[in-house]
Every structure is written in C-alpha cells, then in structure tokens.
Nucleic acid binder design. Structure first.
Lengths: 190, 190
DNA sequence: AACACCGGAATGAACATTCATTCTTATATT
DNA sequence: AATATAAGAATGAATGTTCATTCCGGTGTT
C-alpha cells in the first residue's frame, strides 16, 4: 500500500470518467494510466486488478450517493417535500461528481460486480423503494412498480444532465425545476 | 454471400440477445457462434467483421422500430391518441423483438457505430421530437427538452419490460396502461 | 467429381498483468 | 550541512492470455 493519495485519486477519477464514457469493457488499463498520468504498473500498486478497481469505484460512489440522499432527510415532511429533497440530492451529487451517477446507472447489473457491490446497490434501491412505498400507502404515489418509477426519474434526470453537459442546452434553474415537476407528475397519484 | 437465411438469422438473433444482455464489448465471437450453433468462421461468411455485424443489427432494428411507429400513425387524431399509438408501438415491437429496444437504448452513441447507424438513429429521434414539438405548439405537451422526455418514456417502459421478463412482476394490461398513463402525465402540460 | 458451404483449429494482435529496474525520499553518519 | 544508504514507489518493457479473424480440411449436394 503506497503513500501518495493523489495518485490513487487520479487513477480513480480517470477510471470513473472513462468507464462512464466508454464503458468498463471498452476502456483499457493503458488508457486509464495515460489519463491519470501514471505508469500502467502503478495502477496495480493501488488495485489488485481491473475488476477490483471497478468494484472499488462502484461501491465508493453508490455509498456516497446514498449518504447524500440521507443527509438532512426530511422524514417528517410531506411526500412531495421528500421527493424534492431526493431530486435535489441527485443534482447536488451530480454537480460534484459529474460522471458518477451515469457510471452507476450503466454498470449496475454488470457481470463483473461482486457481492458487496450488488448489496450496496440493492441497499440504495431499497431506500428509494421505501420512499415510494410510503407514498403509495399515503395514497399520494401511484400504485406502479417502484423500479419503473425509479427508471423514469433517473432516466429523465440523467438525460437532462447529458444535454447540459454536451452544451446542447443551457443549464437554468427553471429547467431542473421543470424536469423535477415532470417526474413528480409521473409518479404522483392523479 | 452464402444461401442459408436461417443461419444468418440465427447469428443475428443470438448476437442481439448477447449484445443486449452483456454489451458489445463483453460479447465474443465464439459466444455468438456457440449461441447460434454455428462455427466461429461461419459468422465471417455472413458479416465482414464484428463491427459490421453490430451495425447491421443496429440499423435493422432501428429501421424496423421506426416503421412500427409509423404504421397506421393517426396523424389527425389528438396528441393523446398519437401518444397512445407510439406507446402501443413500443409494446408491440418489444413483444416481437424482445431485446431490440434495450439493445438500441444501450448502444446508441457507442464508439463503433458508423455514420449510417448514427443517421438512422437520428431519424428515429427526429420523428419522436417532431411529435413532441407538435404537442408543445398545441400547448398540450410541456416545454421541456424533448430528449429528457424521451428518456423518461423509454426508461420507464424498458424497466417495466425487464421486470416482467425477469419474472419479478406479472404482466397485465393494467400494468402497461398504468405506465403509459404515468409517462403521459410526465410529458403533458399541467 | 466439382462445387458450395461449414466447422473449428491456427494465427496474430491487443490486452491485463508482472517484474526487473530506476527514481525518490527519508534516515543515518560524518 | 553534506553525503551515504536504504526502503519504498513508480515505471514500462516483457509475459501470458484472450480474442477477432483467417484458413484449411471435411461434408453434402448437384
């Protein structure tokens, strides 16, 4: 276990970017090394192999995202306000970790994830499902499969984020408020 | 170009399934050959190489999906009815080509797609955007980025389909009607 | 027998991983 | 303070493996 934490961090953030943009299987270790400005061998001083690297990354961001959502959670407020908190959490998290949510979305379920990664992801999903279930009980949220509603929310949000990032669209508060409203109308009981 | 159309079809449908389930980069030619019950070399009698194969597949299903949506399109009916037609098109298309939409969704934008594939996909998107734009003009659809709304619709639908296919949920008409309603409420102007 | 078509072993390129070597930094010695 | 020495890090060329692709012998059809 070497010292320099900045090298390890460089490797992790380069890997995150490349995995998000090209996918795990299409990114090579030399690509990561090059992006991180590090020798290829150096990566193996910090991570046993490519799979350990991707699992480390996955767990790190899944946990961090879960924490972001849990922080200051308004458990006693209305369902609508709880939803707002969650949506805000997504935007806050994504503005600090540009590629993280997209990486998680495209790699959950991949064949190389280990049990810990799967369990961490499952835990995250369960929190979201729990929120939706409470809303269903209260008659505020539609009685539809939670996973489908989660897909709607993440799909809409991440696509919006991509459009902003690629410069196709200007980032305004109204825009994100509008998409939040759209997602809310998708899941609320009418 | 050999004769047997069934071998070629076997190769294509095996490739579709594997690409959808594991992704292009994680799928090897021997895997496809094995699944299609064909020698590895045979694949090269029908397709110049792996990239030509994936582009063929991509274009084939993008075009077929576009045709499915265009068929009997109720251009003179209400926006709501047009939306219903499009949503029905997704379910119809998916019930006949189980993995096709998921494959398209996960591989559009991939580095190995050629210009024809990109253009075909663009054309499909433009039709959907055109529908949304008409709805916006009529004041029936929200003024939000079309891409974000498209992501909401496909995300919700495909996730639902996965849940059904994995057996986690029973397929009923009500279920699909419910998700259609949810997607409609996500995009309609309130 | 000539021909078309196949299968799958053989090939070579690209990749993940290893390892002998070099570089850096900290500590000890004068 | 200057120099020597060692330990730990970092490197990238070398290695073994996996894969896309090729090629050749076999099989069936006319």
């Amino acid at each position: 276990m070497p010292a320099s934490t900045t090298k390890r961090d460089n490797i992790l953030s380069s890997a995150l970017m490349l995995f998000a943009e090209r996918g795990f299987d299409a990114t090579t270790i030399p690509m990561i090394a090059n992006e991180a400005q590090v020798g290829a061998g150096t990566i193996y001083r910090y991570f046993e192999n490519k799979e350990v690297l991707v699992n480390t990354l996955f767990q790190y961001y899944v946990k961090m995202f879960a924490e972001t959502l849990a922080e200051d959670y308004p458990g006693n407020s209305s369902i609508r306000e709880q939803f707002h908190h969650l949506f805000r959490g997504m935007t806050r998290f994504t503005s600090e970790h540009e590629h993280a949510l997209y990486f998680i979305k495209t790699h959950n379920g991949a064949y190389f994830l280990d049990n810990t990664s799967r369990a961490d992801f499952e835990r995250l999903l369960n929190r979201l499902k729990h929120f939706l279930d409470q809303g269903k009980e209260a008659g505020v949220i539609r009685d539809l499969p939670s996973m489908a509603m989660i897909a709607i929310i993440f799909g809409g949000f991440l696509e919006l984020h991509q459009l902003v990032r690629s410069g196709n669209i200007e980032e305004t508060d109204d825009l994100f408020i509008g998409v939040e409203e759209s997602c809310w109308d998708a899941i609320r009981y009418h």
